[in-house]
Amino acid sequence: MGNVIDLDAKNYKSLLKNYIETQDEKFLYRAEQISKSFLKNNILPEEIVNLHMQALDELYPSLSGEFQRSMNFLLETMISYGLAHQEFQTLREEQLALKSQIAVAASMQDTLLATSKPNIEGLDIGVISVPANQMNGDYHHFIESNDGSIGIALADVIGKGVPAALCMSMIKYSMDSFPENAMQPKSILENLNRVVERNVDPSMFITMFYAQYQPKDNKLHYASAGHEPGFYYNAKRDKFEEIEAKGLVLGVSLDAKYHQYNLHINKDDMIILLTDGVTECRQGERFIEREEVLNVIRDHAHLSAQEMVDRVYKYFQRLQNFQLRDDFTLIILRKDV
């Protein structure tokens, strides 16, 4: 550090002299570069004022005593800025360390909550889930059963970030522990509700949608715990309908009961499941309308389910200036045959 300031001291003095004599912009440009070098080498403001005082003293020894004392005064006022600068430096380093710890947690979460899209003949599945911050408070999971049916779980913790993400691991491991005969949507939500009620802080809410698709009879059985309603696209009538399902948010009441609904799916019909990160996208101060999501889906309906969800995500990501405000999860199922 001493060397840098010695080297820059010579430069500084000659630049200052040149500038005072010519007022040429190029010397100000060089001053800007010196200032960057100071910053890079952690030279504090009081040291720069001192450098300036010394340079002036050498160049113009006859400058008034009043002026020199005024520079002393300025130097004194810079001390706290120098301290603040050092403090910010330390805090920035701490922040970097924290960020890298969260990155480790996020990748651990990815491993813990990993799920793979099942291959079911005649069913085209598209899924995208993107966290607003590093850790995802949305959770989706596919479960293939021995009887050929698939289960689709989609949950959203109110809140985001690390606490939400921790909560999601609990949901996943509870579900893993349920016996196969309890995999009806209604019983899954009832069991999870008890787990959440007992284990999660009352200020935390989880909404969840669970659907089971049975390809043998083309039926979708589903139940919802206060989750953002999805959509059913009826290909024959070329219309989107809201998938209505009533049910209390998980964790509110120990003995909450959930109603199970079912829906017959025909060729080219679509099931669209989402979290409120999709429907609560905002463009500036304006919340989008739920219909807007459907319009974008409709625009891309000729694509595969995966391409569709990717396009919808890209559309809303751009609409929000590439900064998600909430975790974003969208699942589309389309019956191909």
Binding site: I79, L83, E87, T90, E94
Partner: peptide, 20 residues
């Protein structure tokens, strides 16, 4: 701790003294 004193408007605090 850095930030404890400064965030309360109490100046550089003891960490500041340590730095000076």
């Amino acid at each position: 701790q850095d930030g404890y004193s400064t965030s309360r408007g109490l100046g550089a605090g003891l960490p500041g003294v340590k730095r000076l």
